[in-house]
């Protein structure tokens, strides 16, 4: 699934990473707890979260994730955007809540990438 498809499925605003919209991603993870995200080393490419702080970007960076979707219309501040730009991570935001956002992506083919798919 390309980032631009995520944007269309979740009616996202693009905060940064416009140059990456064609990037093809296969797996995702949704959590507000960063330690839960870090509990699986397998490659996951998209992080959906309702948490807004710089550690979200650092966690994504450690995991080699390429795209973060902030759910429930959460807005990252300038520091977070700058950190994401430095690391080449696309930031999106959607008005959908976590469950719905994850469900829409999963139903359209994005996988969990961990045990239990």
């Amino acid at each position: 699934m390309q980032i631009k498809e995520i944007i269309s499925l979740l009616e996202c605003d693009v905060i940064c990473g416009e140059e990456q919209l064609e990037l093809d991603l296969h797996t995702a993870c949704g959590s507000d707890m960063m330690s839960d995200v870090l509990a699986y080393v397998k490659e996951q490419s998209v992080l959906l979260t309702g948490l807004v702080n710089p550690q979200v970007v650092r966690t994504a960076d450690m995991m080699d994730m390429r795209c973060i979707v902030f759910v429930r219309g959460k807005e990252p501040d300038e520091d977070i955007v700058e950190l994401a730009q430095e690391r080449g991570i696309a930031l999106l935001k959607t008005r959908y809540r976590m469950f719905t956002a994850c469900g829409r992506l999963y139903a359209n083919g994005l996988q969990g990438g961990c045990e239990g798919k």
Binding site: E43, P54, Q55, R58, M62, M63
Partner: peptide, 30 residues
Amino acid sequence: FTHAGEASSQVKKTLKRLGYSPDIIRRIAI
């Protein structure tokens, strides 16, 4: 707390530059 993780980020960059495999780098970085 904002800057927590900066050292790990630097180490990750260095290991990448040295050419270690992405799986190993991810394990170390996490």
